[in-house]
């Protein structure tokens, strides 16, 4: 490679790698702001603002979904499947993908009692795509 081209190539590479490093350091420093929702352990440990609109997410705890006998009200727990769990109160229509043991993101306010008053409930879906016939087989394999 001719010297002037080698010089230009190294400037270009420096531009890219330097820029990438700068941006990566910045976004990791700002990770708390870039994360789309708070995790259950942050909600439980009091790391989130009270009575302000926030987003929190996790898995819907199996067996925790209780619907009101009248109206659209529903109560359920969100867990990180490890140790932290908090309760959510919501009045409205849940998305069709909202399932027990599946991911969800709730938007609303955490009140002083530690109950999350949700104004919106979103469903996360995972990266696995399976036809319905396999469902029985998967459940047999799981203990």
């Amino acid at each position: 490679m001719k010297p002037h081209r080698r010089r230009r190539l190294s400037i270009v590479l420096f531009l890219f790698i330097g820029g990438l490093t700068t941006v990566l350091i910045t976004i990791f420093a700002l990770a708390n702001y870039i994360n789309h929702f708070y995790l259950p352990d942050q909600v439980v440990s009091g790391d989130v603002p009270i009575e302000r609109t926030i987003r929190a997410g996790g898995f819907v705890k199996t067996g925790s979904v209780v619907r009101d006998s009248t109206g659209l009200g529903v109560t359920f727990d969100i867990t990180d499947r490890v140790s932290s769990t908090f309760s959510v109160r919501f009045e409205g229509i849940l998305p069709s993908l909202f399932r027990e043991d599946k991911g969800t993101v709730v938007v609303g306010r955490l009140n002083a009692d530690g109950v999350f008053d949700a104004t919106r409930v979103l469903a996360k879906h995972d990266e696995n795509y399976e036809p319905p016939e396999l469902k029985g087989m998967v459940e047999q394999v799981d203990p």
Binding site: H36, S96, R120, A123
Partner: peptide, 12 residues
């Protein structure tokens, strides 16, 4: 819209 329940969220 049908899966998450929203068309747009300001996620990363």
């Amino acid at each position: 819209m049908p899966t998450w329940g929203t068309p747009w969220e300001w996620d990363a």
